[in-house]
Amino acid sequence: MYHRILTWTCLWLLSATPPAAAQTELSVEELQDYAARARNLITVFLENIPEIASGLKPKDFREAAARTTLKLFAANAYIQEKNKFSERTKTWKPEDYLNELTKRSEKAPVLIDFEIIDDLTPDKMTMKKNKDGSVSYFGKMVFRQYYCILKEPGAFQEPTETNPDLNCQYSDTTEKEVNFELTLQESITGKFWVTKIASIDVLRVF
């Protein structure tokens, strides 16, 4: 009888043990690795977008660039855009955004340039505990996007220092915040911390 009670007590206690799925937090060194990966993601984004938008490259090239860029984003990610003359901020799925940019560049080439003004560092990454006991990390960086829709080639003029955007039929500068997420994901190849862009939000347009 004592033996049976002991057995059931053991089983109860063992099954009450916290699940092994509870994750340990990442060290500063590991976060440095993932911050570097996040920076690499945004570098790829900032390098590919001008190529897709300029309309100078053939379609298969722009498709390859769009394909590579799309892989930088999380499943539910979004990208925001805002016109300086509009109050409305438009939110795009990354796939739709890239398709639209590819199509638009065929009609009117768009010159886009970027400048990172607030970089991501490991100390800026914050941890969030999820309901299932797992943890995720989040980080932010800010860049400026210089946007110019070119005039028809026949209307081109020599840009001046005071008006470098002379050949743009529309131009603006948008300050954007990139949000990264770092989550532990499981695939057929094992469990990996995956860094993705969760969103690109408009901060201000001028």
Binding site: E29, R37, V44, T68, K71, T189, F192, T195
Partner: peptide, 25 residues
Amino acid sequence: IGEAGTISEPVPLLEYLEKIALYRS
């Protein structure tokens, strides 16, 4: 593989090569 030994999920080689073919930095 990161400096601290973190490992990313394996990706097909072609995906990696396409990425570096687009690198500007």
